[in-house]
């Protein structure tokens, strides 16, 4: 996903001289080299100084540039939170904050590197948009969208090596719209970001055990949330399952519950989020997710208990 972002950003930068990337000593490796060679004056490393990174990007944007601030998600959002709030959101500037490692993908690096409440925090900011692509193809589409976006955006990316999930998706990627990535009936699974891979594993498990075709949706735009689209899903399916790599508070799960209440949905609704806890468990990303209760088998058992 990281490589996809830098590959597309290179293409975007080629077409638009206002594009620039500002990193805080963390850079998308590999394919960024081409960008750096061709546009050396539009690649800036501010050092390990995230407050400076965001303030600096705001200044660039105030002069008509289109900056991307880039580092690990926790550092990109938490240290310079007030710069994001005041410099970017209050002034409504077109700066995209790219957070690598959204969720707990940096599993063994520990809680300092886990962005497990990033959606809640960014959602609370007026003017902020949040896009969390589920695979490299969505990351590509999201990067193009970000380049044209008029206000601040948080682009929540994974890391590297994510599989393609949406090559045959029935719906196209459209900013602000829930996207059907697999057709089905009766049951629908909603997810966003790289845990969508696991959501699709759950889909396969349900289909294997229960038969039928289960639908899957990528809710890539977490803010503004496609409330009408989700309400429609809640009314269209008998069973709706939300899988997210984020704490329950103010994530997709909580918002879907609220929407279900508002629209008087009659479906069964099951939600799976990260625990409201710093879990000191060290293993793979999948191992840590399992500790949080996020595993196709565990979720299946809860749904059909």
């Amino acid at each position: 996903m990281r490589d996809t972002f830098s590959r597309i950003l290179y293409q975007v930068a080629k077409a638009d001289p206002k594009i620039c990337i500002v990193v805080a000593d963390i850079s998308p490796a590999g394919s960024m080299n081409q960008y750096r060679q061709e546009f050396p004056d539009r690649f800036m490393n501010v050092g390990v100084a995230e407050q400076a990174m965001i303030g600096f990007c705001a200044g660039l944007a105030m002069r008509g540039m289109k900056p991307y601030a880039y580092t690990i998600a926790t550092f990109a959002l938490y240290r310079p939170f007030e710069q994001i709030r005041v410099d970017l959101c209050y002034q409504n500037l077109p700066v995209t904050v790219v957070g690598i490692g959204g969720g707990v993908v940096y599993s063994v690096l520990g809680g300092t590197h886990h962005a497990q409440e990033d959606i809640a925090i960014m959602s609370a900011l007026p003017n902020m948009s949040i896009v969390a692509p589920c695979d490299p193809l969505e990351a590509e589409a999201a990067t193009w969208v970000s380049a044209k976006h008029q206000g601040p955006m948080y682009l929540r990316l994974g890391k590297a090596g994510e599989p393609v999930l949406t090559a045959n998706a029935p719906d196209k990627f459209e900013f602000g719209k829930a996207r059907c990535i697999k057709a089905g009936s009766g049951t629908a699974v909603l997810s966003y970001g790289i845990i969508t891979k696991m959501a699709l594993e759950l889909v396969a498990k349900i289909e294997k055990e229960q038969g039928g075709q289960v639908a899957a949706y990528s809710i890539h735009t977490v803010k503004p949330l496609d409330q009408a689209g989700i309400a429609k899903i809640l009314q269209q399916y008998d069973r709706v399952i939300v899988v997210e790599e984020h704490s329950l508070q103010a994530g997709l799960a909580m918002q879907t519950r609220a929407l279900a209440f508002e629209c008087g949905a009659r479906c069964k609704l099951h939600t799976f989020s990260l625990q409201d806890e710093f879990i000191h468990f060290y293993g793979s990303h999948g191992d840590l997710l399992k500790q949080h209760g996020l595993h196709p088998e565990l979720m299946y058992q809860k749904i059909y208990a």
Binding site: C20, D41, R42, M44, Q51, A52, I54, G55, F56, C57, A58, G59, L60, A61, M62, R63, G64, M65, P67, E82, Q83, V86, D87, Y90, Q91
Partner: peptide, 23 residues
């Protein structure tokens, strides 16, 4: 610039200054 929370103006100014250099 919107200011009032301290410690923001210099970062903004440096971003503007660098944009002016680029442009």
């Amino acid at each position: 610039a919107s200011t009032g929370s301290l410690g923001h103006g210099l970062g903004l100014g440096i971003g503007m200054a660098l944009a002016d250099n680029i442009q």
